[in-house]
Design a protein around this nucleic acid. Structure first.
Lengths: 262, 262
DNA sequence: TGACATTGTGCGCATAGCGCACAAATTGGC
DNA sequence: GCCAATTTGTGCGCTATGCGCACAATGTCA
């Protein structure tokens, strides 16, 4: 639950519509272990009154976001419409795929495009070559801790350092592998390096045998909007190959993407 | 604001939280042409009072769903969290990808997994073989008219026929190509055929030269939750190959997916 | 610089939405 | 099968909440 900080902040009272916030919380209360819930379960998970949860759920049913069957509620595909609002408005909805496919084929590795949400990396597109299988499979919508992944560090690199430190301070760094950097100072150093070098690296910090390399993707206005990442295996690629072969190819694709982005 | 006839629907009054509904409308008001909007623009697009739009936007800002810069508001990646709630709760979030990748490699065509939202097909995952490029590129989150695509017809095939007819009645069928079926009776017939055959076909109805074939994906409970689709080109594949080669392979993958779904 | 257009927000009012408390339904134990 | 226990559904009165007007502030153009 990374969203717990919001509840702490003072809702600027007059300029805050709490029923709306409560409603969004209801949507977010669904997850892998909560595929379908009763009113009471939703009420408990969200901390709102049972009667309120019921009204919010019925509102969602009315709007088509939720489906109810035998007093159990579950989200419908309609929810994807909300994400589509973002993806399409960010220009990440389509037409980037061919570039990712070409890139994946050329470097013969899984590549992915990701954006930042708080302290997490969210994958918005990916491509890989058939037959090659990483233990670690990236899927659209998937999330990873930003501080422990190449893409995350790259995405953080262009944020004001003060913001990054603040974010880091309130994030719990989970050790994912033997090599995960957990020391805050070292993480900051890695992010600074990413900014300086124009790329970020990750050696088995997210998963054993997994090497990640990420470069920034800018929009035409020059703002960094995404990170382009290639994942390979330590067994398959050494540092030399990553630098000499994969990195330059990543950068050309990143450049191509720029022209597609608003 | 001219379209402020939202009184049409009967919001079960007491059991309906209108501020929440208004707020969701605000999120949905963003799109490809509305990347960033002022309060007034949002107010106009949603039909709510300017002051209300402002409060809802500020609420979204407060929760991290929206970002504001020089009085222009835009959606943030945080919105994807909502979609993730659905995808993960539906078990479509991950781990299906390897099966799609194998399938794409074997049939040497683009394959995709999709779900139904009202009269639209929403793609939730895809895979294709590098180098092969269809004019038509499917991306996660993308939408297609359900009545004119193979996946759509397959997804509709297991709904009660009365519901399908009702949906069809209130949907405007857009002619996408010379071969798009626009006749309602013929569409119903195609859907019935999909149900009977256990697969749906589409010859250049969505795009010229594009052939689609879809099979149902059931969850372990036996409910159809998605459609698995292969897209190929009329130039590349004839009907015989689709039936003898692609279709059986689609079905085996669909079977594999079943075991992954709740 | 003044007139016009757009955006920000204080304030009073009405009601939407809250949450209690009771009713209905479901479950479970024997 | 029956009653107790638990869970779920909902009517109702109160007041905080959110609405929308109207004015203030800010920005724009000539």
């Amino acid at each position: 639950m990374t969203a717990s900080k919001h509840t702490a902040m003072a809702p600027d009272s007059r300029a805050f519509v709490s029923s709306f916030a409560r409603g969004l919380k209801v949507i977010e209360s669904f997850g892998p272990d909560n595929r379908s819930m009763t009113v009471a379960e939703v009420a408990e998970r969200t901390g709102v009154d049972r009667a309120v949860a019921r009204r919010l759920l019925l509102t969602l049913v009315h709007l088509g976001f939720v489906h109810v069957h035998e007093r159990r509620f579950e989200l419908t595909t309609h929810v994807l419409r909300l994400a589509y609002s973002f993806l399409s408005s960010a220009g990440l909805g389509a037409s980037l795929q061919p570039f990712l496919d070409d890139l994946a084929r050329d470097v013969r590795e899984t590549v992915s495009l990701s954006v930042l949400d708080e302290a997490e990396v969210v994958f918005v597109a990916r491509s890989d070559i058939p037959g090659r299988r990483l233990a670690y499979v990236v899927t659209t919508g998937m999330r990873l801790p930003a501080f422990s992944s190449a893409s995350g560090r790259m995405l953080l690199a262009h944020r004001p350092i003060a913001d990054v430190k603040k974010l880091l301070a309130r994030t719990r760094i989970v050790r994912l592998t033997r090599r995960t950097t957990v020391n805050q100072a070292e993480i900051i150093k890695a992010i600074a390096a990413a900014r300086r070098d124009g790329h970020a690296l990750n050696y088995e910090e997210t998963e054993d045998d997994l090497i990640g390399i990420a470069v920034p993707v800018f929009n035409r206005a020059g703002l960094m909007v995404a990170a382009l990442n290639a994942s390979t295996s330590a067994a398959r690629a050494d540092e030399a190959r990553v630098h000499s072969e994969i990195l330059p190819r990543l950068k050309t694709t990143a450049g191509q993407l720029t022209s597609m982005l608003p």
